[in-house]
Nucleic acid binder design. Structure first.
Lengths: 347, 347
DNA sequence: TCTATCGTCTTGAACGTTCAAATCGCCATG
DNA sequence: CATGGCGATTTGAACGTTCAAGACGATAGA
């Protein structure tokens, strides 16, 4: 059972003091090159790794990023957050951070978890997904000066805090444009009931594209809950009515799958074109055209913005009040453009 | 900015010493009831939370469970591990543990990550999924005496270490039995190429059920890669041949979806019955009968077995060699029974 | 030559917790 | 009445790291 290798072990091996080893690892520029080399050799030879707990004790930094893992949703779109989580873990590791998970049934429970986590593991930052109107979590964290980033806009006030999001409207706009380019004129939109930021945003992209083409959208906007069966029923009704659309842009792959099934049932040979959102495995499997979010990129931005916030905390006194010359004080926003993956459901 | 609340703050507030506070929290039985009450009040009033880093320094325990998050697979079945991960996070929280994530491209990279993690964050245990023949990770961890559990059997030697798994064979057996009960006689199996533990296991359940019913399986076992398109092609061929099956049990929902599409295309009015595995969102959405794994339960068992291993470590010297009266030394195995979710694809 | 400065390295202290040992009062036992 | 033991609590030390301050020799400026 090999004894634990501490900084003292390395120091003895290299014939220097503890602090010199620490300096080699944290502030190499203050130590002579030859010494640095010797210490590195010792670290290598002994397989030394800085103990995170001890480091945290002294510095107050845990190099941990906390985020919530959601219960699998009904729908098909759950996989989006999982891909994001994977991207986050990778990006974090690239910056020397690890991701620690928690669950919470609702916002209130989540805030209780914050208190727990902050007391015990003291993560350096939080990543919040699934933002919504009147989100209580962000203000709680902001009030405590905790660094955090949301993946998803704060739908109430865009400049409230740092966030990363994907431009859903641009996605549906591109999808609609793609259909218009194929000759479609009656392009419908199947979305969620009004009031959800994400849903309303996606609808607006469709409306914008239609308007730009000089087309009337009256009677072409449909609404239902985010479930396959409901979408299927809705589209069945839509196609049986007087002047049915020839293409449908959907707010999610769940809706799109339902629409796709209804379309094929109504006319197996030349079904109505259907376009989904999120490019989930199902869309790939079924051959559904869909809007794809750059999740890995979004996750990388989250980590980048967080590390910047954390670093900014160190020089706290300077940022508040003075000229924000370095811009570290102003919350940053990143809006990424999704891309359209064209498959056979729109050809 | 409220000062940090430490054990010393609580001690002063309650008029006792540090150690007494520590005792109230860790070994309440040694402290007088009245004192205990006073300390609890102080903890409550000040919102005290034990600092994990400091605790870890002293005890060597981090109360962290490390597990890997996989890159999203091609298929549809990725959601299985995500549900498991969610269950794991919840179960861990229930036992006072948190889940910390890492990624790794392959086994070798994963082992490198172990060294990193063990040096820095020193998790108390690991949970490994996606076990396979000749898994190098388990022996590495075992050699270092690291507590770990795999979700998935060690396919080489069942008694090698502690594991939790779902009885895939029982699942396909039940699915096959369900189809036989509906009057089907020519029930085919569509699985993965031989050599994967999971796949071979699932095939064996089907074979068992067929044998029990006295049916011949010659020419009824099909094989293809785990992709929707390939399954679709395979089943198209199958149904065009001389004596086609009337029902197909599949090793995954990906395969089942492909089979389902081919079946409906071949005969929209009375398609061949199809049964999948994993009860993924897609199966739910499309109406595919599927075998459902009790993932939350599996995760809970993992945590239970881990905490037991961790606790067993403390009395290390006693367990080795002596009579294993308490059984803590022998690796435990848990095999859970999946359940069949019947939907319209088999009626 | 004396002092100041710089580069390099070392020493003591502290972070918050728990372990091990010591203290103290009290009661039972010989 | 001395001794021992027990229950309840306190005190000192240690975990491994980094910060703050200091030491030491060499070089430069007055």
């Amino acid at each position: 059972m090999a004894k634990k290798v501490t900084i003292a072990t390395v120091a003895r091996y290299a014939g220097v003091s503890r602090q010199t080893v620490s300096n080699v690892l944290n502030t190499p520029e203050v130590v002579r090159e030859e010494t640095r080399r010797r210490v590195h050799e010792a670290v290598e030879a002994l397989g030394y790794r800085a103990n995170q707990a001890a480091r945290q004790m002294r510095t107050g930094r845990s190099r941990l990023i906390a985020t919530r893992i959601e219960p699998t949703r009904d729908g098909i779109n759950g996989s989006v957050l999982d891909r994001f989580l994977h991207g986050l873990t990778e990006a974090a590791a690239g910056s020397g951070y690890r991701v620690i998970l928690y669950t919470a049934a609702d916002d209130e429970a989540e805030i209780a978890t914050y208190e727990d986590l902050l007391g015990a593991y003291t993560p350096d930052a939080f990543v919040l997904a699934s933002t919504h109107h009147g989100d209580a979590r962000t203000s709680w964290l902001a009030a405590r000066g905790m660094p955090f980033v949301t993946f998803g806009r704060p739908w109430d006030a865009l400049d409230a805090h740092t966030w990363v999001d994907v431009d859903g409207a641009a996605g549906t706009e591109e999808a609609t444009g793609h259909l218009l380019g194929s000759g479609h004129r009656r392009v419908a939109f199947l979305g969620w009931p009004e009031g959800s930021g994400v849903g309303d945003d996606r609808r607006s992209g469709w409306a914008r594209a239609m308007a730009a083409a000089g087309l009337d959208v009256a009677g072409l906007a449909y609404v239902c809950e985010d479930r396959v069966a409901e979408a299927e029923a809705a589209v069945r009704g839509m196609l049986g009515a007087g002047e049915p659309p020839t293409a449908i842009v959907c707010a999610s792959d769940s809706l799109a799958l339902g629409a796709f099934q209804a379309a094929r049932a109504a006319n197996p040979d030349a079904p109505v074109a259907v376009c989904g959102f999120d490019d989930t495995p199902v869309a790939r499997a079924v051959g559904l055209t869909s809007v794809s979010q750059p999740l890995e990129e979004a996750a990388a931005h989250c980590v980048r913005l967080l590390t910047r916030q954390i670093a900014g905390e160190d020089v706290d006194g300077q940022n508040t009040g003075g000229q924000q010359e370095d811009g570290a004080a102003a919350p940053e926003r990143v809006l990424l453009r999704p891309s359209l993956v064209v498959r056979r459901s729109t050809t």
